[in-house]
Simulated scan of single mutants.
Amino acid sequence: MAGRVVAVHTSAGHEFSKSARDAIMLREGLGVEGDAHFGATVQHRSRVAVDASQPNLRQVHLIHAELFDALREAGHVVAPGELGENITTRDVDLLALPVGARLRFGDAVVTVTGLRNPCQQINEFQPGLLKQLVTTDAEGHVIRLAGVMGIVSRTGAVAPGDTVEVELPPLPHFPLTRV
């Protein structure tokens, strides 16, 4: 499988949306240089409040651009970076990846740890958007569509237009859950 990077984003503060960049630097074991979530231990405020010593499994947030296409059809205009992702991709089925899948962006490698669990802030950004990003299937299982989270496994730069190569982990594969 191969896809491409549509856009990259960072924010030094804990704002909801992130600003577009020409390139971002991923640092092994730490995340996106210059981003508020950069660090080996948790940086998300709610998780820091519970236990600041937990490992940071949410160093990099990735969203598939196809989500924005679907949201537009549902009446929500959302641009890359506005949901707080660091990397926006196209032609990679991020939500179908198993835990431990590796995404290669040239030298940089991100290992997928789980699904983003969107919060109420999304409705403050656009009323009704949360219902589009968290749904249930016919059996009543919760479906999270707001992208995936990962850790940086190899340092390198990522820029729009870069190729995304997917490397699956050895079997058995485990489905993504929220992290």
Score class of each variant (00 low, 15 high):
24 I>P: 03
126 Q>C: 03
28 E>T: 14
170 P>A: 14
18 K>H: 02
106 G>D: 04
151 I>P: 01
54 Q>L: 14
177 T>G: 15
49 A>N: 13
170 P>R: 14
45 R>F: 13
50 V>K: 11
142 V>T: 14
26 L>K: 01
20 A>M: 01
138 A>N: 09
63 I>A: 04
49 A>H: 11
5 V>W: 07
160 P>K: 08
30 L>R: 12
173 H>L: 13
138 A>I: 13
89 T>L: 08
94 L>S: 06
29 G>E: 08
169 P>C: 09
110 V>Y: 11
94 L>A: 08
160 P>A: 10
141 H>S: 13
90 R>D: 02
93 D>L: 09
35 D>M: 03
8 V>T: 03
36 A>I: 09
31 G>M: 05
153 S>H: 11
108 A>T: 03
40 A>W: 10
106 G>E: 02
153 S>D: 15
121 Q>L: 11
156 G>M: 07
169 P>V: 00
132 Q>P: 05
151 I>F: 00
122 I>V: 15
25 M>S: 09
143 I>M: 14
22 D>H: 08
139 E>D: 13
27 R>Y: 05
10 T>D: 02
43 Q>I: 03
5 V>S: 01
55 P>K: 06
81 G>F: 01
179 V>C: 13
111 T>C: 07
64 H>L: 08
144 R>P: 00
85 E>L: 05
76 H>K: 10
56 N>Y: 06
100 G>N: 09
124 E>F: 06
20 A>T: 14
156 G>L: 03
94 L>Y: 02
63 I>Q: 00
12 A>I: 04
93 D>V: 11
104 R>D: 12
22 D>G: 14
107 D>S: 15
70 A>M: 11
133 L>Q: 03
12 A>D: 12
67 L>C: 11
20 A>S: 15
81 G>P: 00
139 E>M: 10
145 L>G: 00
89 T>W: 01
118 P>A: 03
78 V>T: 04
147 G>K: 09
175 P>Y: 01
8 V>Y: 04
17 S>F: 02
97 L>W: 05
23 A>W: 08
3 G>T: 04
116 R>W: 11
6 V>C: 00
98 P>F: 10
70 A>H: 13
147 G>Y: 12
106 G>T: 06
135 T>A: 12
84 G>K: 10
162 D>K: 01
83 L>S: 00
149 M>C: 14
159 A>M: 07
79 A>N: 04
77 V>E: 11
140 G>L: 07
105 F>H: 09
98 P>D: 08
127 P>S: 15
14 H>E: 10
41 T>Q: 06
160 P>I: 05
21 R>M: 15
73 E>F: 00
136 T>D: 10
162 D>S: 07
178 R>Q: 11
137 D>K: 09
28 E>N: 10
49 A>Q: 03
29 G>T: 02
33 E>G: 02
77 V>W: 05
83 L>N: 01
115 L>K: 04
42 V>M: 05
95 L>W: 01
1 M>C: 12
40 A>C: 04
42 V>D: 00
37 H>R: 11
